[in-house]
Simulated assay, not measured.
Amino acid sequence: MIGVIMHVRTKPDKTQRFIELTTQLQKDVRANEADTLLFQVMQSREDPNAFGFTEIFTDIAAKEAHANRPYHVAMSAEGYACLDGDPDIRVFDLLGEAAKAGVHA
């Protein structure tokens, strides 16, 4: 299994639009990507312009397919335009029981 952790900051005047885009993306991912075991976007309590993404895929092929889904591609340009700086994206291998048993969204 492959895990992705991403942190982003939004431009203050684009935060609400970013929330709308990522909320819809969560719905699309959960409805269409059986190999995406977890896709969760979170907003910081301390900084409303800071967001974290937690993503878990069954394998690297599922991770790569995720970014190429039509709904993901369609929202990407507008979503990136909401960001203040580059995203911090890190890819991990899962350890322990989660890696053995699978994780469910």
Rank of each mutant, 00 (worst) to 15 (best):
I2T: 09
I2Q: 12
G3T: 15
G3E: 02
I5N: 10
M6I: 01
M6F: 05
M6V: 12
T10H: 04
K11Q: 07
K11Y: 13
D13K: 11
D13T: 02
D13V: 03
K14G: 11
K14Q: 11
Q16P: 00
F18P: 13
F18R: 02
F18T: 14
E20W: 02
E20P: 08
L21H: 03
T22M: 14
T22Y: 12
T22P: 00
T23F: 03
T23E: 07
T23G: 02
Q26V: 14
D28S: 11
V29F: 05
V29Y: 07
R30S: 03
R30G: 06
R30H: 05
N32L: 01
T36Y: 02
F39I: 06
V41S: 12
V41G: 05
M42G: 08
M42N: 08
Q43H: 14
Q43I: 08
S44V: 02
R45W: 07
R45P: 02
R45A: 13
E46K: 12
E46M: 03
E46V: 04
P48I: 03
A50T: 08
F51S: 08
G52F: 15
G52T: 14
T54S: 13
T54C: 11
I56P: 08
I56G: 14
F57G: 09
F57V: 08
T58S: 03
T58P: 01
D59M: 15
I60K: 13
A61N: 06
A61R: 06
E64P: 12
E64Q: 09
A65P: 10
A67K: 00
A67N: 14
N68E: 11
N68K: 00
N68P: 00
R69C: 11
P70I: 03
Y71Q: 00
Y71L: 00
H72T: 09
H72L: 00
V73Y: 09
V73E: 00
A74E: 12
A74W: 01
M75V: 15
M75S: 00
S76I: 07
Y80C: 09
Y80P: 04
C82P: 12
L83K: 05
L83W: 15
D84P: 08
G85K: 13
G85A: 04
P87G: 05
P87S: 11
R90H: 11
R90A: 07
R90P: 02
R90M: 12
V91M: 10
F92I: 11
L94E: 10
L94A: 12
L94V: 15
E97M: 10
E97G: 12
E97N: 04
A99S: 13
A99G: 01
K100E: 02
K100R: 12
K100Q: 01
A101L: 13
G102W: 06
G102T: 12
G102E: 15
H104S: 13
H104E: 08
H104V: 15
A105I: 08
